[in-house]
Design a protein around this nucleic acid. Sequence first.
RNA 1: GGCCGGAUGGCAGAGUGGUCAUGCAGAGGACUGCAAAUCCUUGCACGUCGGUUCGAUUCCGGCUCCGGCCUCCA
Length: 462
Amino acid sequence: MGLTVYNTLTRAHDAFAPIDPSHVRMYVCGPTVYDRAHIGNARPVVVFDTLYRLLKRLYPKVTYARNITDVDDKINARAAESGRSIREITEETAAWYHDDMAALNALPPDVEPRATEHIAEMIAMIAVLIEKGHAYAAEGHVLFAVSSMPDYGALSRRSQDEMIAGARVEVAPYKRDPGDFVLWKPSSDDLPGWDSPWGRGRPGWHIECSAMSGKYLGTSFDIHGGGQDLVFPHHENEIAQSTCAHGSGTFARYWMHNGYLMVDGEKMSKSLGNFFTVKDLLAKAPGEAIRLCLLSTHYHQPLNWTDDGLAQAKQTLDRFYTALERVGDVAADARGAEPLVAPVVNALMDDLNTPAAIAAMHELATQLNKSVEPAEQATLKAAMLEAAGLLGILVANPEAWRRAGSGAASGPSDAEIDAMVAARTAARGARDFAEADRLRQALADAGVTLEDGAGGTKWRRD
RNA sequence: GGCCGGAUGGCAGAGUGGUCAUGCAGAGGACUGCAAAUCCUUGCACGUCGGUUCGAUUCCGGCUCCGGCCUCCA
């Protein structure tokens, strides 16, 4: 059974057939760097990172490109209001982004192009679009003429008439058609700008992705991903620009879009202001728990973000780590592990069904917990770690995970806890259970749970 | 107004034309000085009204409710 993905272009679950099976290429829209990433920004990163991991397992070479948008009016506005330079803001924000995504165990993409480093490519592409009659210059702007493209609207399945009827934004007077969108716009002296055949200006939002995906992945590539809110207009316009400029090629063959992140039943977004940053969440839960929480709902569904959901993800990881720690002395042995990994792989092959994959992980954990035979434990352990590698979890040392808890600990230090545990062990040895229970309670009050086992007493932070 | 999604047990969340999702929470049991962890057993479900069918939570249609998009957004 092969990989199947839900393709927004066809509105169907399509069997994935790469253009070049020896080299799969994927593009995902990255951040505009003007502010901390929020958890809604993190969802596509984690989802497509999981897909990237799966693709790397299935194909010999995968090129994953994810851009950084470092020229944008929101960045300009942030610079103007803060008095800081644009460069300072974009560099700082990009660094935060990298830190936050690394904390979520997201692998870096193979290519991470920046818009400001590809202005020449964008200008060249715009020139081609004008030359081919798909774009026109007007009042210092260059606009894409949607009427020049019969298929415009195919991805989002909307006709141009519908868009005009539903338009809620004033149409600029220099547009020939209300649906025309900006490829290039003029910059005043106080705004970032580059010299172009149409005067000093800056690129429109959509052109960068077309220029950069074309440069790094070619005129036809396999997968293009992003949030559902990018279907229209961003991805629709990317298709228009790229296919009209290239003249040949299919651009992206599979379009995958993750659902929204909700808070209290409403879409989380910067414009609504109801968002949590990844950094804030990392203060109260391990990155791995945030990641698993994001993967606990199928990527195509809306995900309602709650503290309870995050706590459950943490609890799930506790269960997995506990199972691994129990067989800590057993070396993982991958021989014969493949059939045990298969349920997890098969779930992911089915349009990245991560909830089903996690359920399969639970089955593995249960089997491992029940197993008493070292050879079987070695195989199960290898299977679990292999499957976890696809989901991007269980990268920590089980004991370290147990001691770290949620990572928000403010109570006693490890050494202080160890000392209290030693004192309790001594009390138990003397059969002074009153003292032993007093110490257990004292630790419990400090958020530390004790587990007496054959090998001594272990403790874990909440 | 136009166009999309969704509605599953106390909660989260997959899936399926007729026998188990899974996890958490609940109940009972094993183990434990007491716990915790773990294991075993167990209760609880498919918005509503029709249709197709031997049989529908699953397919079709109406309805209700919820969310989103219609050129700021992951």
